[in-house]
Simulated assay, not measured.
Amino acid sequence: MALVGGLMFTNGVFAQEEKQFNFSVALNSDQFFGFYPTFQGSYGFSGKTRFTFYGIHWGGGTGAGWGNWTEFGVGANFQAAKGLSINPQIGFLGGNLLSSGTSGPAIFGDGIVPNLTVNLLKEKVEGQFYFGYYAPLRDEAPANGTTLAYTHYWLNLGFRASKFFSLGAHYEHLINSGGSNVETSTDVYQWLGPYVQFSKPTGGPFARFSFGTDLVEANDSFFKLTTGFSF
Results as ranks from 00 to 15, higher is better:
residue 184 T to P: 10
residue 165 F to Q: 07
residue 180 S to K: 05
residue 180 S to Q: 05
residue 193 G to M: 08
residue 178 G to I: 03
residue 164 F to C: 04
residue 165 F to A: 09
residue 167 L to R: 05
residue 167 L to W: 08
residue 164 F to L: 11
residue 178 G to D: 02
residue 178 G to S: 04
residue 191 W to I: 09
residue 180 S to G: 03
residue 175 I to M: 13
residue 180 S to C: 05
residue 176 N to V: 00
residue 183 E to L: 10
residue 175 I to Y: 09
residue 166 S to W: 05
residue 163 K to F: 12
residue 186 T to Q: 10
residue 169 A to E: 13
residue 190 Q to D: 15
residue 190 Q to G: 13
residue 178 G to N: 01
residue 184 T to Y: 12
residue 193 G to K: 06
residue 161 A to E: 14
residue 168 G to I: 01
residue 179 G to Q: 03
residue 193 G to Q: 07
residue 185 S to F: 04
residue 187 D to M: 07
residue 189 Y to Q: 07
residue 179 G to H: 01
residue 187 D to K: 05
residue 172 E to T: 04
residue 193 G to L: 10
residue 168 G to V: 02
residue 170 H to F: 13
residue 185 S to D: 05
residue 185 S to G: 08
residue 191 W to M: 09
residue 172 E to I: 03
residue 189 Y to N: 08
residue 194 P to R: 10
residue 176 N to E: 00
residue 179 G to K: 02
residue 167 L to F: 13
residue 175 I to F: 10
residue 165 F to K: 07
residue 180 S to F: 03
residue 197 Q to E: 03
residue 165 F to H: 07
residue 172 E to A: 06
residue 192 L to Q: 07
residue 185 S to L: 05
residue 197 Q to N: 02
residue 195 Y to N: 13
residue 163 K to R: 08
residue 168 G to W: 00
residue 185 S to I: 05
residue 184 T to I: 12
residue 183 E to C: 03
residue 174 L to I: 00
residue 180 S to R: 01
residue 193 G to N: 08
residue 179 G to E: 00
residue 161 A to C: 09
residue 163 K to I: 08
residue 162 S to Q: 14
residue 195 Y to A: 15
residue 173 H to I: 04
residue 172 E to W: 04
